[in-house]
């Protein structure tokens, strides 16, 4: 019943772990680890957004008819978060710890509130609306990792 919630919330937690590892490395001036960890975080976060935008949201919109609803808000926030990811990548390239940490703080606040809204409201709605096809949707989202 909670396949979608479970799968995507676990994915959030995975991204959080990578985020923290990169930030910790920047804070101790370990730029090599920071770069590896940030790249992993960047890829995982963008992949998560793609899973939602190309699989979950279209299915949700088609089933509920809510094409101007919460998915639009979530897409807008994804765009904001992608912009900050870009800024963090640039700070990393320039080894600018202050800029990286300042953006990381900003990103974390945006990302965690965004995740909270998805986990509390959107995913449960999706679990409900897409109960009959959730197994298939999760399989499709997983296959994107490919």
């Amino acid at each position: 019943m909670h396949d979608i919630s479970h799968y995507l919330s676990t994915d959030h937690a995975h991204c959080d772990t990578l985020f923290a590892a990169a930030e910790n490395a920047v804070a101790r001036d370990d730029w090599r680890t920071a770069t590896t960890q940030f790249q992993a975080f960047d890829i995982a976060t963008r992949l998560h957004f793609t899973r939602e935008e190309s699989i979950l949201f279209p299915a949700f919109e088609a089933r509920t008819g809510m094409s101007h609803g919460p998915t639009v808000v979530m897409r807008g926030e994804h765009a904001e978060i992608r912009e900050i990811l870009q800024g963090m990548a640039e700070a990393l390239l320039g080894k600018d710890a202050d800029s990286y940490l300042g953006l990381a703080e900003t990103l974390l606040m945006l990302l965690r509130q965004h995740n909270l809204k998805e986990e509390q409201i959107l995913y449960p709605l999706a679990d409900q609306a897409l109960a009959d096809s959730s197994g298939e949707l999760v399989r499709d989202m997983k296959s994107l990792a490919g």
Binding site: G87, S99, G102, E105, T106, M109
Partner: peptide, 28 residues
């Protein structure tokens, strides 16, 4: 100390549509 810098950044970003580098981040 989390809410105020976040709101200042967030409202500024969404009101002005400024580029990321053009406005102070939370720690600034």
């Amino acid at each position: 100390y989390k809410i105020v810098p976040f709101l200042a950044w967030f409202h500024l970003k969404t009101q002005t549509g400024a580029r990321l580098g053009a406005i102070p981040n939370m720690k600034q």
